[in-house]
């Protein structure tokens, strides 16, 4: 039985889709079978981030409405054979995403994949609730910025109240994934400190993903950063986060971009 991981945040633009793709690819690289579901109906973009936009034929809603079988809608990654994508629909009819339909799809995927990753839409409405509904684990993507932390707090409340786990009196395992962390701004004192965010939200840290131009390059190319540039600072940060998801206990570091020449001479700090 695979585990269901929801990548969520409340706020938009914080790095959910980037993280879902990067973590999914990193978990697949470690030998596990992974499927990432795009729950952002109407505004899908996981297909773009994963470079599969030209290959979408069926989507999640087609499967739910019975126009396609699940295997027909899964798109296998061209670079990583253990990685699959289930795209969102472009249709504006969000109501087509039914609770029962989603439950069935996740049950089926859970039976064949080690990880089912749900890329949540922004907001705290129906779409976000559906995405978190069956989660065993949640990665709450938060930027070091006041409104993002507040929205994450609301999402944590929803994870504790609205999920299947919550309804059974259990808990979704919650992890904080700080993304778009800018070290230069941190040292200038104008950015919320990691410790402060952890203290306010009081959930354990899964990783710190530095702000990096490499993420933009990867998305231009349509490749998760962990495939496109695994040695980059965000690449290494996502790889260690993936290891923690697998239960490994490793210290949290903030990976830095390795300077090609000097980094190596100095023994290039690893994450």
């Amino acid at each position: 039985m695979g585990q269901v991981l929801v990548v969520t945040s409340g706020k938009g633009g914080v790095g959910k889709t980037t993280s879902a793709a990067a973590l999914g690819a990193a978990l697949a690289e470690s030998g596990q079978n992974v499927v990432i579901i795009d729950f952002d109906v109407g505004l899908r973009n996981l297909d773009l981030v994963m470079g599969a936009e030209r290959r979408v034929v069926f989507d999640l809603i087609n499967v739910i409405q019975g126009q396609a079988k699940l295997p027909q809608a899964l798109i296998r990654d061209k670079r990583q054979e253990r990685l699959y994508l289930l795209p969102a629909s472009q249709t504006r009819d969000k109501d087509a995403l039914t609770e029962r339909g989603v439950a069935r799809v996740i049950d089926d995927l859970r039976a064949t994949f080690d990880w089912v990753i749900c890329d949540s839409p922004a907001g705290i409405e129906r779409g976000a609730i559906l995405a978190m509904q069956h989660a065993d684990i949640a990665a709450i993507v938060t930027n070091p910025e006041i409104s993002s932390v507040r929205d994450s707090d609301r999402i944590i409340g929803l994870l504790d109240a609205k999920t299947e786990k919550a309804k059974k009196g259990q808990q979704v395992v919650k992890h904080l994934l700080v993304a778009r962390y800018d070290e230069s701004r941190a040292s200038s004192g104008d950015m919320l400190q990691i410790e402060d965010i952890v203290e306010i939200l009081s959930i354990p840290l899964l990783g710190i993903i530095p702000e990096s131009e490499q993420v933009l390059r990867a998305s231009n190319l349509g490749s998760p950063i962990t495939i496109c540039n695994p040695e980059s600072a965000p690449g290494r940060a996502y790889f260690s986060a993936a290891k923690r998801l697998n239960g490994e206990v490793i210290p949290i570091t903030i990976p830095r971009e390795r300077n090609r020449l000097f980094g190596r001479l100095l023994g290039g700090r690893a994450a």
Partner: peptide, 17 residues
């Protein structure tokens, strides 16, 4: 140069899409 390169890829992908 490298940056322009991936921007070009992004541009082409978007045009088609």
């Amino acid at each position: 140069l490298r940056r322009r390169h991936t921007a070009q890829v992004a541009h082409d992908r978007l045009r088609i899409l």
